[in-house]
Design a protein around this nucleic acid. Structure first.
Lengths: 239, 239
DNA sequence: AGATGGAATTGAACAGGTTCAACACGGAGG
DNA sequence: CCTCCGTGTTGAACCTGTTCAATTCCATCT
């Protein structure tokens, strides 16, 4: 069994220290260039000890995800309280998301590399990412509820998940965005937050209703159907 | 300089043999579990020699991409000739795409892992993937042109790229699809090919026209803006 | 034939992620 | 105080991707 379950204050502290140091080094030198040996040394522990707390180097990234979400909430809460329209509220949150990730852009490629690998505990769809995913989706639910907008029942029920996928796409774009300061991503946020709200408003148009139904079914399927016994080649997902 | 440029029949043959053996092993044991030493041995060359032809293990995957596209064309050409409507033609090609990838589903995760990493020569957006990408897009252009459908100029101009992105998304879904025989992906093809054609038909509706314009701009941007001096941490993309 | 130069090829060495058997520590129970 | 046992911790060893200086091969030229 991994050490994650039992966390005496001693172990907890060590674990924290390793993660802290790791994130710093990732930021300074990049993911690849940061060696597990470096991390261990900088954290004042042995190489083997790092593996006692983090089964693989990639598991350190999960800590990164968690931190990002905390920062996101902190960075957007205030502005969000002032924003009324859904369009504006979306803008605020998405901009904040990009803001808090800024320091990591140079290494984001490596950081997110495993994210799209099916079966990886780092996949945003994975069981292991469940808590982080639920937090993110719930926050988006607040974003929606806080606006005056109302939608057809089926759409409303799945809208948080839908927007979460949008957020994911935005992050993917940001990762690949090399314009200075990721200017283009901010532009995309402007355009897309507007477009999304408009499309949502049109969801009841005669021609779109049928398509909407089926699309929602698929969205729900994508989000949910990931608790299955998915095992990646070689490595069991036991954790 | 890499060896790719000059290909005497001797080297060509060796290169082919390595790639052949590699793809077989990937299929049998998975990507991670297949060792460069295994590949070299099975191909009857030295370890170093493999690296003469394929700068990294991942470069072997590029060969996989190329093969897939060739197989796709072979598998769909005949049926495509019989299909008239855009919806039907889309269905045929997308189903063929999934068909030819079938044998690789178990390892597809690892195979496509690098695909989403920015700067990687394996990224479908990368310079290195240019030829393969253009082939794929051109094939989609045929798919569109072969149907009777006509679209507004700006839409028509970017439709192949748009559909290519759709194809990419479909592949991502397929990679994560664990239903038996990837049944769900086939279902998604049914639904989405229909939805796409309907949406395209509505692109001129008053509310959608403005959105369409801006979306197309972004699609064009995503596809093109990838020739820039993008360097991944540590490794230069010199190739 | 002999020389020359680039293409192919080799094997050893290196680096970094991961594993593992052994050991230290510290509190609970006797 | 001693024993026991599970949590923490260690460092060496292993495996595998990657690099590189050195060597062989071979077609062409003299």
């Amino acid at each position: 069994m991994s050490a994650v379950a039992t966390l005496s204050s001693k172990g907890q502290k060590t674990r924290e220290r390793i993660l802290e140091v790791a994130l710093e080094l990732f930021q300074e030198r990049g993911y690849e260039a940061t060696t597990m040996r470096m991390i261990a040394t900088a954290a004042g522990v042995s190489l083997g000890n790092s593996y006692y707390y983090f089964p693989t180097k990639e598991h350190l990234v999960q800590g990164f995800y968690n931190r990002i979400h905390i920062d996101l909430v902190a960075a957007s809460k205030e502005q969000l309280a002032k924003a009324r329209s859904l369009r504006e509220r979306l803008r605020v949150v998405m901009r904040a998301q990009v803001d808090v990730m800024l320091p990591y852009h140079a290494v984001s490629g490596a950081l997110f590399r495993s994210a799209l690998t099916p079966g990886s505990p780092l996949s945003p769809f994975s069981e292991a990412s469940g808590p982080a995913r639920r937090k993110a989706i719930n926050y988006l639910r607040e974003v929606i509820d806080g606006s005056g907008s109302r939608f057809p029942a089926d759409l409303a029920a799945n809208l948080p998940e839908l927007l979460w996928l949008y957020e994911l796409g935005l992050v993917m774009f940001w990762v690949h965005d090399n314009s200075d300061g990721q200017r283009r991503t901010y532009e995309l946020i402007e355009d897309s937050s507007d477009a999304i709200v408009r499309l949502l408003g049109m969801a009841n148009l005669p021609g779109l209703r049928a398509i909407r139904k089926r699309m929602l079914t698929w969205v729900a399927a994508v989000i949910k159907e990931n608790a299955g016994p998915l095992v990646l080649e070689g490595t069991s997902t036991a954790d």
